[in-house]
Design a binder for these strands. Structure first.
Lengths: 201, 201
DNA sequence: CCTACCGATCGGTAGG
DNA sequence: CCTACCGATCGGTAGG
């Protein structure tokens, strides 16, 4: 029951998961073999199975804990905050999490496809919750007139999510400018949603 | 030298490429085997090699002709058109090409990673040209004051490209509404770039 | 386009 | 965490 950080088996498991995340991010799940992961952590291929159940279980752990991190970030935002400000906070939180580990973000948002049926269904549910936050926040912003009344919620959401899902391609890991990146991205995206006469202070 | 559409060998080659595009789009390049492709076109695995040189040559053909299609679309736009209008045309052209075959777009924009060094370098050059068109057009729009003077060209370009690269996830093949999708996407993206006082007619 | 096949590599396991 | 191994599958080829 003890899973403190000093548990060596847990530490080894974390090392394996971190190595797998980097490899999946570079070469994709089917392009990465258990032997590749073993080599990265200086083990023999069979030894990996002392720490994990299967190759797919590695992917599932990475993807499910990853998507939960994104969901938790937006769902912990204060719902009393004005929708446009809340959307900005969500965009910045997303960029921050991507900047922590862009390869992990790449795995989380693209490689759930390789999961088996049950695992994939669970992950898709979490992804939907994440997307739903953005859709709801944008919809709310239209109601409060923080955003343009003629805005199509579907397309506005797809634009924001598209820009966010592209961030792992250009955000650098541990980039000290990532806070700035989030702010600039939010600035442009929000400008596209705001009514003309309320754009600048 | 004759490569008319009635050449049966060319037709078979096209059939193989189309099947491979769909499979790569669904399961990725490393997740798709030559045997999968052969099954899809009702051949035995070895027979494929009468039409193509290697598995990687299939990917290279799909990706290079695909990216050229996107580049050609934007580079054929009239450079005399106002930058904001030209950007709208480019966004709509992008969505139209994605709608023709979303799986192909997925392969073109994500799976060039699996190419060998020389092939990958060629494709990256074409990708850069495509991105450069958007960067240059946005930069031009700032100069002509069609876009906000305080706009950061880098982030504006990344926002537009992100939204465009996400379209294969939601545009449906042969969607009759795809023209509408392009227009709505362009509308939101351009609103984010335009100055406040010139937004609506 | 088929038959028949190659060496390499895959995910995973038994038994310690 | 290692030794030793399994059956399955991989990309690709010779020879027709």
């Amino acid at each position: 029951m003890s899973t403190s950080e000093s548990d060596p088996a847990v530490a080894t498991r974390e090392t394996i998961l971190a190595a797998a995340t980097a490899l999946f991010g570079d070469l994709d799940y089917p392009g990465t073999s258990i032997r590749d992961i073993a080599r990265a952590v200086d083990m023999l291929p069979g030894s990996i199975y002392a720490y994990i159940d299967s190759k797919e279980a590695i992917l599932y752990t990475i993807v499910s804990t990853g998507i939960e991190q994104f969901v938790a970030a937006v769902e912990s935002l204060d719902p009393a905050t004005a929708p446009d400000e809340r959307l900005e906070q969500a965009i910045r939180a997303h960029v921050d999490i991507v900047a922590e580990n862009p390869q992990r973000a790449l795995v989380v948002f693209h490689q759930w496809r390789y999961l088996g049926d049950e695992s994939r269904a669970k992950v898709i549910t979490a992804r939907r919750r994440y997307e739903e936050f953005f859709r709801a926040t944008i919809g709310e912003g239209i109601k409060t007139q923080a955003f343009r009344s003629d805005l199509d919620v579907r397309y506005a959401t797809l634009t924001v999510l598209g820009a966010l899902n592209w961030t792992p391609e250009w955000v650098h890991a541990d980039d000290p400018a990532s806070a700035d990146s989030g702010r600039k991205l939010a600035d442009i995206l929000l400008a596209g949603l705001r009514p003309v006469d309320e754009d600048t202070p």
